[in-house]
Amino acid sequence: MMTDDLTVPRTLRAVGIAGSLRAGSYNQLLLDNVIRLSPDELEIEPFTRLAEIPPFNEDDARQGGPAVVVELRDAVRAADALIIATPEYNYGVPGVLKNALDWISIPPGNSGLEGKVVALMGASPSILGTARAQSQLRQSFVFTQSHVVNHPEVFVTKAHTRFENGTLTDPGATKLIGQLLNNTVKLVRTLRSADGNAPVPGAVR
């Protein structure tokens, strides 16, 4: 018996970025756990070439940028959402992460970030987590008219005590991550439905 495919929400796709280059990075561990915790309806593909992106140069950007930038921009543009696990350096966003976002924020009106749903989180040994870095990222996404998921905020504090053999052991953080991912899916479906172009099956109304 045939089924009506329109009743089954399609699997959404997201690009995941950990904003640290350090081996054993807490935020890479966090992103790895997020991928494992992702609901069935959301597939997260990590971008692993952050270290290869050169410093932003507007002259090169006018030509589209280097191949690794084109790859990231195209991946984000084609995805339904972007998920970022950011460290906090000197009370702010790591340079390598901000650099990558600067590259894919252009051209204005047709960037990889235009209207994209973005979920933020971060891990830090600090008792404040990455609150300041996430706040700065939210400001950056105003320019690109991206839709940052507002709640819940995920700050993995005292990160050096939160992982065991690569697994996030904090049940509170795990619960918040699940809620954030579910809210990311809901926001994507709601926005797609509101577009009126092609209503997304299963959208939250």
Rank of each mutant, 00 (worst) to 15 (best):
T3H: 14
T3K: 15
T3S: 15
D4R: 07
L6H: 12
R10E: 10
T11Y: 00
L12K: 03
R13L: 04
V15C: 00
G16A: 04
G16Y: 01
I17L: 14
I17S: 06
S20F: 08
R22P: 13
Y26F: 15
N27F: 10
N27T: 15
Q28T: 15
L29I: 00
L31C: 07
D32N: 10
D32C: 00
D32E: 05
N33G: 08
I35K: 01
L37I: 04
S38K: 02
E41Y: 04
I44S: 02
P46L: 06
R49C: 08
L50I: 10
A51C: 06
P54Y: 10
P55H: 14
F56P: 06
F56W: 09
N57Q: 09
E58L: 09
E58V: 13
D60N: 06
R62D: 15
Q63T: 07
G65D: 11
E71H: 07
R73M: 04
D74V: 08
A75E: 01
R77A: 13
D80K: 02
D80T: 00
A81Q: 01
L82P: 02
I83L: 07
I83M: 03
A85N: 07
A85W: 05
T86Y: 08
T86N: 11
Y89A: 09
G95I: 08
G95W: 11
G95H: 14
V96F: 08
V96L: 13
L97R: 04
L101A: 00
I104F: 07
S105F: 03
S105R: 03
I106T: 13
G109S: 12
N110Y: 06
G112K: 03
K116A: 02
V117R: 02
V117T: 14
A119R: 01
S126E: 09
L128P: 04
L128K: 09
G129I: 02
G129H: 02
T130E: 06
T130V: 06
T130A: 11
R132W: 10
R132K: 14
A133D: 04
A133S: 14
Q136Y: 13
L137K: 12
Q139Y: 10
Q139L: 15
S140N: 14
V142W: 12
F143H: 13
S146G: 15
N150I: 09
H151N: 13
V156C: 07
V156W: 00
V156I: 12
T157F: 03
A159E: 04
A159K: 01
T161Q: 14
R162Q: 15
E164C: 09
T167R: 15
T167A: 15
T169L: 05
D170Y: 02
D170L: 01
A173T: 05
A173E: 07
L180V: 02
L181F: 02
N182V: 07
N183F: 10
N183A: 12
K186I: 07
V188N: 04
R189M: 05
T190A: 12
L191K: 05
R192S: 07
D195P: 04
D195C: 08
D195I: 00
G196V: 07
N197D: 15
V200G: 04
P201A: 10
G202Q: 01
A203M: 08
A203F: 12
R205V: 09
